[in-house]
């Protein structure tokens, strides 16, 4: 069964995933909206930067983050200069890492959902007296609902499952930066296969349940829209 360390790793993991998902949605929504509508020349460049974590080994990303967030790095140094702590080996550092690492999983579904809406419903809302912000929240967001569900679930699940970045910048401090994926690794190192089984099985089940729920919800939504097209 789970011991005290496993439980605190579970709490840290869920907290990290929840905070990161909220931040990802807050940052990713305007970014995805802008990317879905802009005709900016260098859009491809930005898209590539956001998608980098998909192809980059997580340790590479983690290494650069460690350099940036540590006391000698630009961000960590700035924090120290302002009288704060360097961000490496802290929960805040983990959040920053997770947000960057999971960004494509949030931005891409949102961008696709916003693109699929097209400009027409927004124009209709404009002729019905809705200001730009008003029509974003009352038309674009509800119509992009499947995108938001996919983005939240993927962002959350991907953060729960991350290993390389966390290993590099987290430092594996119990109760602070030790997450489940690393706890599993530690158990295996220590030949505690029973613990590793419990944690791995739990994560497997959680991921499966999350994915089944997105596919079910989105399928229902797609079917609804198909009915509309057949009319």
């Amino acid at each position: 069964m789970l011991n005290e360390y496993d439980l605190s790793a579970l709490v840290v993991t869920l907290k990290l995933a929840a905070v990161s998902t909220l931040l990802l949605l807050a940052l990713g929504t305007p970014l995805a909206w802008w990317m879905a509508r802009t005709r900016w020349k260098y859009k491809a460049l930005l898209e590539a930067v956001i998608a980098l974590p998909l192809v980059l080994p997580p340790t590479v990303l983690g290494f650069y983050l460690l350099m940036a967030l540590g006391s000698n790095g630009p961000i960590g140094g700035a924090m120290a200069w302002l009288g704060g702590q360097p961000l490496a080996f802290t929960f805040a550092g983990l959040v920053i890492g997770s947000v960057i690492y999971s960004m494509p999983f949030v931005v891409q579904p949102l961008q696709n959902a916003f693109s699929a809406i097209g400009s027409r419903p927004m124009e209709v809302a404009a002729t019905l007296r809705a200001s730009p912000l008003d029509r974003f929240f009352t038309v674009a967001v509800p119509l992009a609902r499947p995108g938001f569900i996919t983005a939240s679930v993927l962002g959350f699940a991907h953060t729960v499952g991350e290993f390389g970045v966390v290993l590099m910048i987290g430092g594996n401090i119990p109760g602070e930066t030790q997450v489940l994926s690393i706890a599993i690794y530690d158990h295996v190192e220590a030949l505690e296969y029973g613990h590793a089984h419990w944690l791995s099985g739990g994560l497997l089940l959680l991921s499966f349940i999350l994915l089944v729920s997105i596919y079910t919800i989105n399928r229902r939504f797609t079917l609804m829209q198909q009915v509309e097209h057949e009319h």
Partner: peptide, 27 residues
């Protein structure tokens, strides 16, 4: 959105997430 006009598009373009009543009340 500050022009007092009504616009009817070629396709009805009703808001898919609202029922008829809410579509009517939106504007």
């Amino acid at each position: 959105h500050q022009r007092q006009l009504g616009y009817v598009f070629q396709e009805a373009s009703l808001f898919a997430h609202l029922n008829v009543q809410d579509n009517l009340q939106y504007g």
